[in-house]
């Protein structure tokens, strides 16, 4: 699905990602954890195609194609979805209008007929129930006046409507109370399928109790310094990131070799 090779990324001349290697196969859920400033959000923005991030080296293959040659819109149409850490507000555009434009752009791209207002609202109603969102949310301006939890649930609702092939969740759990977290996780788990992959970026292990990952990677200072199974998240929660940084040289990683280590 997605293969990242020796990816280097700079922002304003400062190198943030210093050689990332990662492979995600169809149906897999990968979690990226790491301390603040390690480059987690940078990775998500680069995958989505944000031009403020300069790729200075490396390669990203998505479904066998060179992802870096595609612009933001083309990537989205090819099935890449980013659930934003801080969803922006757009006054004057209703959630419904926005989402219908998005869903129909995807359908046009795939050569499918556009959804009319009736089909759209039937579908939206069904998906909103899963995210436990009130129907009034469709009529409100996009993200304007939404609570933090509503914004995050709305991102997941959008994802459910758009049905991407590869979804990146950038700290979707941050700022959520336990009930909201449960709802968001339910929404995401409902979308898991053998064809769809996820990259879940999170600061805390907590989310991974609900969305159980196939692989966990630890990102620190722009490199993946350790990779493992779902237990790694628990271990991190227990011992903190300092534990890995200390133990990095001898590598206590039990299941997979830490792919980031070989690169400099």
């Amino acid at each position: 699905m997605l293969k990242i090779q020796d990816l280097h990324v700079s922002v304003d001349g400062k190198e943030i990602l210093k050689g990332i290697n990662l492979e995600i196969r169809p149906g897999e859920v990968h979690a990226i954890m790491g301390p603040n400033g390690s480059g987690k959000s940078t990775l998500s923005q680069v995958l989505a195609g944000n031009e403020n991030y300069e790729v200075t080296g490396g390669l990203i293959l998505y479904q066998g194609r060179d992802l870096l040659s595609l612009d933001v819109e083309a990537r989205a149409l090819e099935g890449i979805f980013l659930a934003f850490q801080y969803p922006v507000e757009i006054p004057g555009i209703s959630n419904e209008q926005f989402l219908r434009a998005a869903v129909n752009a995807g359908r046009r791209h795939r050569g499918e007929s556009e959804l009319d207002a009736f089909d759209f609202s039937a579908l939206a109603k069904q998906k909103m129930e899963v995210m436990e969102l009130g129907a009034d949310l469709l009529d409100r301006s996009l993200n304007v006046g939404f609570s933090g939890g509503e914004k995050k649930r709305n991102e997941c609702f959008q994802m459910a409507m758009i049905e991407p092939r590869f979804a990146i969740l950038d700290e979707t759990d941050s700022g959520l109370d336990i009930d909201a977290l449960r709802i968001v996780a339910k929404g995401i788990n409902g979308l898991r399928s053998p064809e769809r992959s996820f990259l879940v970026i999170t600061h805390y292990q907590r989310l991974l109790n609900y969305i159980v990952p196939d692989h966990v990677h630890v990102l620190a200072d722009g490199r993946i310094i350790m990779s493992g199974g779902k237990e790694l998240a628990l271990e991190l929660d227990d011992k903190g990131y300092g534990w890995i940084e200390e133990g990095q040289a001898r590598s206590g990683e039990p299941q997979l070799s830490a792919s980031g280590e070989a690169e400099s």
Partner: peptide, 27 residues
């Protein structure tokens, strides 16, 4: 119209032209 608003629209598969038109019409 912020770059971040356009980025959001593009990320959802909406072209810049359609995004601007939507935002302005909403305004």
């Amino acid at each position: 119209i912020g770059d971040d608003q356009i980025f959001l629209c593009n990320q959802r598969g909406i072209s810049t032209e359609d995004a601007v038109s939507m935002i302005v019409n909403g305004f």
